[in-house]
Amino acid sequence: MQPTELIIALQNKNQAALKRIYDMYSANVYGIVFNILKDETLSEEVVQDVFVKIWNNSSSYSEKKGRFFTWILNIARNAAIDKTRSKNFKNSSQNLTVDYFVDILEDKTNFSSKIDSIGIKKYIETLEPLCKKVIDLLFFKGFTQKETSEELDIPLGTVKTRNRICIDKLKQVLEI
């Protein structure tokens, strides 16, 4: 849902609105950031930065430009990618073993109560390898269709439809 009232309150610098937006989106931000950085301490720093940016730049959001979720997603990705250029990240990233979000989810046992953990687990078990890659690049990393098609060496027209199939499955499993 697009939290229109909350967005307006946020744009009016209502701190309670920020708290509710935090409750709604902090896990998403953290998930996106963690998938890029794969380091909890660094990710928590970035999550803080992301919500400070959401607070400071709320006036730049307009519904005409896209979904509020998408706006937050962009801030989160950019902040995390910025962090990958930092010294701290380069030091910590030497031990990285996981490549995709799927690897994180496979190892994970503790989920927030908001998450349909059974559905998610079921989803990644049955997910095609190409779907894993497409979702990782397009959704988590913010690649464009063209960049994705080049990275995965698949036709440009296929990216969009393939992705559609991958997300359809997610909706089915989660019964959304």
């Binding site: 849902m1 989106y25 902090s26 896990a27 998403n28 931000v29 953290y30 998930g31 996106i32 963690f34 998938n35 909890e40 990710s43 928590e44 979904r67 979720f69 979000f101 994180i104 989810l105 994970k108 503790n110 989920f111 927030s112 908001k114 998450i115 349909d116 953990s117 559905g119 998610i120 989803y123 979702i135 959704f139 988590f140 997300i167 997610l170 909706k171 989660l174 959304i176």
Partner: peptide, 18 residues
Amino acid sequence: ERIEQSLQQLSGALAPEQ
């Protein structure tokens, strides 16, 4: 809305314990 909801589940599932 459905796409967004499913993506929120997916990305939220990735988040470590806050």
